[in-house]
Design a protein around this nucleic acid. Sequence first.
DNA 1: TACCTCCACGTTTTT
DNA 2: CGTGGAGGTA
Length: 760
Amino acid sequence: MNSDLLDGLNPRQLAAVTLAPVPALILAGAGSGKTRVLTTRIAWLISTGQASPGGILAVTFTNKAAREMHTRLAAMLPIDTRGMWIGTFHGLCNRMLRAHWRDAALPQTFQILDSADQLAMVKRVMKAQGIDEERFPPRQVTWAIAAEKEAGRRAGAMEATDEFSRRVRDVYEAYDQQCQREGVVDFAELLLRSFELLSRHEVLRQHYQRRFRHLLVDEFQDTNVLQYRWLKLLAGDDGAVFAVGDDDQSIYRFRGANVGNMAAFEREFHVREVIKLEQNYRSHGCILDAANALITHNAQRLGKTLWTAEGRGEPLRVYEAVTDHEEAGYVVDEVAQLRQEGVRLIDIALLYRSNAQSRVLEHALFAAGLPYKVYGGLRFFERQEIKHALAYLRLVANPDDDGALLRVINFPTRGIGARSIEQLQDAARERGISLWAAACGGHGGGRASGAIGGFVQMIERTRASVAGLALGEIVDAVIDASGLKPHYRTEKEGEDRLGNLDELVNAAAAFDLAAATATVEGDIVDADPAALPALDAFLAHAALEAGDTQAGAGQDALQLMTVHASKGLEFHAVFVVGLEEGLFPHENSLDEHDGLEEERRLMYVAITRARRRLYLTFSQSRMLHGQTRYNVASRFLREIPEALLKPVNASPARHAAGLAGHGFGGGGSGGRSSVAGPSWSAQYGRAPSAPRVTDPAVATIAARAADHPFRVGQNVEHAKFGPGVVVAAQGSGSDARVRVNFRNAGEKELLLAYAKLTAA
DNA sequence: TACCTCCACGTTTTT
DNA sequence: CGTGGAGGTA
């Protein structure tokens, strides 16, 4: 079996899998078989007797990745992987905190706040403190608190230099106290609390350090500071941390990921040898060459070059549209063509930098009758009706959960108005107790306590009635008692919601309690019997794994998503649309530290998603924020060698005549290994240059030749905006811009490469 | 309490 | 241009 396991690994992969139990850093390029290495390493450690299943901790970022690891491992080893500590950082921390709730100073039934719950809680705290939400937007405060936690800092340890951070510090402190009172934790708190638990409890720390001799980390480049410290703490002096990552695919700095962790790891763990996995099993040569060339423009790299044993394949097809609608039209035509060639829609991806770009594409796809699926929408456990049902369940599990109570105390409406709720909040605040406790105390005041009393009784009656029931039955009974169903039956759009409530019951019935709470020999568990342990586990599951973005899987539909969402996926054909300055790279990134390099890594991720065919498209104009913007082609296009690109535009003449052909017909299908066609600029250089022909590439070349075609003060004429005066001229070459004050259209910034601007 | 209108805002997001 | 949140009105 051992030899089977290692069969088919390339030398680098083999070296990584069979590495001695010392800290190791594996630089795993896109498509280099990283997951395989990770899982085979675990299987190898177990099958050679170097580790027991309970002695391994493997951590990932997404539930999907964790599931995949479980699945692959189960296929390799004749063991039950469910009890193994394989999961997300948050999932594993949750597990640890559930086992040691007393030492972590949490109630056994502590609940987990998702981002929306967290924001609501911050708003509540800010309101109680009388803080102006205009000056201190709750979203930003929430974000700042999370950032502090992810850096491992409590409110007391915050250095507050300015007004904003002083406010954040105050809110943070009150927020933490309120969470503690209610027995709830947010996502970052799971990690921070687990970290603090391990640092303060020497016995526990030593237990886990002795137990987990092998710690394997996926997507190491995405770890934040706190996660790194958590790993370091667990590893102790001689834990073998096997870190797999790719600095070139680090695209989550904006949410706290710290690429620096890779270099820090190498240094602090005294990594002797970095193993690079550079053989790519996904893409053809041209695609990899393009990715390699692009990423060499980044200065901050550990260094790595992908290669493939496959052929060079086709060049990358570059299409330049006049408008965003026309760009979408081109994509639709090409997708239809690919489909005719037998490519399945599910194997074609449309990638964009920002979600707003999907609309135009969706319009075109819908009109053309092409089925598509957009990733990144509302997820199952985030739907309103599901959140309401979960709030009832949370109250049953832990009545001190104020957030849950506020959400449903008057939904469906039961005559508890804003005033009674405010009185209840005042009473609770005064006595330092939860809303639930205040409601039970009956000091809500006035007649409103009758309705509130009814609500309290309903919850208590329900809780008593579900004791001893199976999870599915509990969820069913609580939903029944809530009155949500009759409410949604009267709502005209309630059909789907009712269906989703049924689905929630099904999910609960099918919930694999064993997998969620399984322990293996050697686990320390604080086993005080809880009233409803299955419910706690299910609610944690709902918070930590919000469910798939959309149901209806398996359908043959085109895949639409942001580049971020595409990380880790691969497709036969990929369209990267909107490759324009300002969009991709995004303008907001340009003044951020390291912003442009992160954008470039994002582009690197986009390119490396494609197996066989890659389309790069951009548009001269685009509707954004209600007005048309004129953009230049993304610098990333220029950073890819021309020899790898094949322009596929219709010639201007054919365009004008409304013909549908796309540039140079046929060439390049199948296994052609050389790059076809004249170079991009050369091709356009020969295009007819009739007056006012809208051929931006011609303009590009012209602009390159003459640095500043216009001078400040010069009178000019624009085909659309009419006459005007140049008020500013900046940039040079293809980036040359002018600011023109138009007589009728006002002041506008124009990109000379594209604007139809002439001297007047 | 529910609906509607107006206004502000607009990069990426998992847990 | 579209959306979503907040606040005002019926």
